[in-house]
Design a protein around this nucleic acid. Structure first.
Length: 719
DNA sequence: GCGTGTACCTTTTTT
DNA sequence: AGGTACACGC
């Protein structure tokens, strides 16, 4: 028997034992959210709820697997049969079983992002829109605008008005492309990511019998990361749960970082309205980070508007101050980061150290340096494994075996042959579509390679071997082209393809393998304890490490240059910063290079420190800067310092911190006095900032940040 | 009209 | 590193 009351705190216990009716759990960063979900799963199972009655919707399949594994360990027996995964994967599994087209024996193929881009390009060309018009948005932009319009369920005009005013003149062209794109999908039996959700909603609304069946089946629903659901996802939860259903949403409005793809924080805010009688439970005790790390993360959030106020506190009093490190450039940043990683490796195992960044390409220099020193790393986010060109090539064959009329895949395979461009491809596709083998062979006569491709596909289609076997044959066939196309690094890519066969060997159904590959990047699946982690902040969501290094905290990079004009976007960047820093358990290092190397712009350009660092009270971190002789020097933030004489020569010196942030308090004054204090009502707290002349910002455990007159505080002098 | 090679430019985040 | 625009050659 599990002793729930002993192993959980009061709030967690309440969340774990409230099994009936709607529950909303507001889980602060590091507050034991996963633990709570895991114990709740265990509790349900211990009380005899069948696993098949539980639906667990998570943000990644990895998160779902982790929860199930931990629940198994807790219970002492394997947990099997719980439905779950991501919304998209769950949606596909329903469509696979119940979609009308599938029931009629037709194929539904999932398009990944690259397929959608190709399709949009195709529609744009076919309509002849914007030929030679440079002001017309790029294909990728068109796709994201159309997708945003669907995800936010706003007319395209409105999306443009809000986010891309300068593109309003092209509204008509973009929406015509959108209509053509929808026809294209319908015609070829293709579903893009957004379709998965909307098609399921339509299915559930059109088939009350099916809905009733599913409601009866999934009696207990849990949804993780609820702050990052969009409108249609929230409606799906409502449909599946029904009124007064046993549904638990878990999330944290302060960690909403997916508004750019249509996530709506309003979902978590109005959950209690949609489900009357909702029990709201807040998890506020932080078990992850040391107090100094927590102080810094609280300061990041202090100015952000938040609907569910939380006051994170910890009982851990130990810990070292976070560090702000100011290298001279992003190039030297890379070497300093790598030497810091080497130092950390003396204390922590590799998989407990993470380097986080805003965008995939920001880690490039660090990757080079790590390779140089032979430090193993794994990178998450950025270019996905399944989107690498060679993987897409091989998968295109697999898709054509399954669905001979999968146009994106056909285009990909056809393009591998010399002399075949877009027009020829379409002509051949039309011939192939007629299904007359003789005609097809004739049409391909001039392209022997393509003919060999199609013959291979025909053979495979007749035999329908297991996915792994099929891939092996495709790869053997593809090998000469791999070597020709990537003379520099084909062995590396070949290894990647072998990995693909490995992954496929776990599947019996080709269509499941293909859809899983587009729905979840297998590169993120297994973790590797011998490698340091490099990750975009988005991919770091929900994870934690002993030591965290954050790169490129400069304007234009973090916050991203695309996110500084609109207040909403800027706030999302701030939450992103919050998410990044709250990943750290013990060590946190923020890197602020003074210049960035820009190609074409004459080398190094000065870079301004990110506002997220500028606004931090100086007492919350230790500061280091790189001197021109190469070493790192500690800057004593408690006293005014003489800046290095050469500092301003190249315009890339650390910003003098005595320059006050406009309208903000001076972080320097009185910093020497910062320490702990006691207050009659709030108790002992940590002084975070002196607000001259006579106020202090104090963080009280369990209460949060308060601004208090010095007269009401008893100061401790322990420096 | 179609395909290819080259020079250049730009790089957010993800299902 | 990958896409795009343009010029050239079939």
């Amino acid at each position: 028997m599990i002793e729930f009351a002993k192993e959980l705190n009061a709030a967690q216990y309440e969340a774990v034992t409230t099994l009936d009716g709607p529950v909303l759990v507001i889980a602060g960063a590091g507050s034991g959210k996963t633990r709570t979900v895991v114990y709740r799963l265990a509790n349900l199972l211990e009380r005899g709820v069948p696993a098949s009655s539980i639906l667990l919707l998570t943000f990644t399949r990895k998160a779902a697997n982790e929860m199930l594994q931990r629940a198994s360990r807790l219970l002492g027996y394997g947990v099997q049969g719980i439905a779950g995964g991501t919304f998209h994967a769950f949606a596909y599994s329903l469509l696979r079983q119940y979609h009308p087209a599938r029931l009629e024996g037709r194929d539904l193929t999932i398009m990944d992002g690259a397929d959608s881009v190709a399709a949009i390009q195709h529609c744009k060309d076919a309509l002849g829109i914007a030929r030679g018009d440079k002001s017309f948005p790029k294909t990728q932009t068109v796709l994201s605008l159309l997708s945003k319009s669907r995800n936010k369920e706003l007319p395209l005009d409105e999306v443009l008005r809000r986010e891309a005013y300068h593109l309003l003149v092209h509204a008509d062209g973009v929406s015509r492309i959108g209509e053509a794109y929808a026809e294209y999908r319908a015609e070829h039996g293709l579903l893009d990511y957004d379709d998965l959700l909307f098609e399921v909603e339509r299915l559930l609304r059109e088939r009350p019998d099916l809905l009733a069946h599913l409601r009866d089946r999934y009696r207990y629903i849990m949804v993780d990361e609820y702050q990052d659901t969009n409108l249609v996802q929230a409606r799906l939860v409502q449909l599946l749960a029904g009124e007064g259903g046993n549904v638990m949403a878990v999330g944290d409005d302060a960690q909403s970082i997916y508004a750019f793809r249509g996530a709506n924080v309003q979902n978590i805010l109005s959950f209690p309205q949609f489900f009357p009688g909702t029990r709201i439970i807040k998890l506020e005790e932080n078990y992850r980070s040391t107090q100094p790390v927590l102080d810094l993360t609280n300061a990041i959030l202090a100015e952000a508007p938040q609907a569910y106020r939380k006051h994170l506190y910890t009982s851990r009093e130990d810990g070292v101050l976070p560090q702000v490190v100011r290298p001279l450039s992003d190039l030297t940043q890379a070497s300093i980061v790598v030497s810091r990683v080497s130092e950390l490796l003396r204390t922590y195992p590799p998989h407990e150290i993470a380097v986080l960044f805003r965008a995939g390409f920001h880690s490039y220099h660090v990757e080079v340096q790590l390779n140089k020193l032979g430090i193993r790393f794994r990178k998450y986010g950025g270019v996905r494994y399944s989107e690498a060109a060679h993987v897409k090539d091989v998968m295109a064959y697999a898709r054509l075996v399954l669905n001979p009329l999968d146009l994106p895949a056909f285009q990909r395979v056809a393009a591998l042959s010399r002399g075949v461009g877009p027009k020829t491809t379409l002509r051949l596709y039309e011939v192939a579509r007629q299904g007359d083998p003789a005609a097809t062979a004739h049409a391909c006569a001039r392209y022997p390679q393509l003919r060999a491709d199609l013959e291979l596909l025909d053979r495979l289609r007749k035999r329908t071997p297991a996915p792994a076997t099929l891939l092996e044959e495709v790869i053997e066939h593809y090998q000469p082209r791999l070597e020709a196309a990537y003379p520099d690094d084909w062995p590396r890519r070949q290894q990647g393809l072998e990995q693909l066969v490995q992954i496929a060997s776990a599947y019996r159904d080709l269509d499941l393998f293909i859809s899983d590959l587009s729905l979840e990047d297998p590169g993120t699946e297994e973790e590797d304890r011998d490698s340091v982690v490099l990750s975009t902040i988005h991919s770091a969501k929900g994870l934690e490490w002993s030591a965290v290094i954050i790169l490129d905290l400069v304007e234009d990079r973090f916050p991203s240059r695309h996110a500084v004009t609109r207040a909403d976007d800027f706030e999302e960047e701030r939450r992103l910063m919050y998410v990044a820093c709250t990943r750290a358990r013990e060590r946190l290092m923020l890197f602020v290079p003074s210049s960035l190397y820009q190609r074409g712009e004459g080398g190094n350009q000065p870079a301004a420190p990110s506002p997220f660092v500028r606004e931090l009270p100086a007492a919350l971190y230790e500061e280091w800067y790189e001197s021109y002789t190469g070493g790192l020097q500690r800057r004593d933030t408690s006293r005014p310092v003489a800046r290095p004489a050469v500092a301003s020569t190249f315009g890339c010196a650390p910003r003098p911190e005595s320059a006050p942030v406009p309208g903000g308090p001076s972080p320097v004054a009185g910093a020497a006095k910062l320490g702990f204090c006691t207050h009659k009502i709030f108790g002992r707290g940590k002084i975070v900032q002196h607000l001259p002349p006579d106020k202090y910002r104090v963080n009280f455990p369990g209460v949060g940040l308060k601004v208090i007159l010095g007269d009401y505080l008893t100061l401790e002098d322990d420096a």
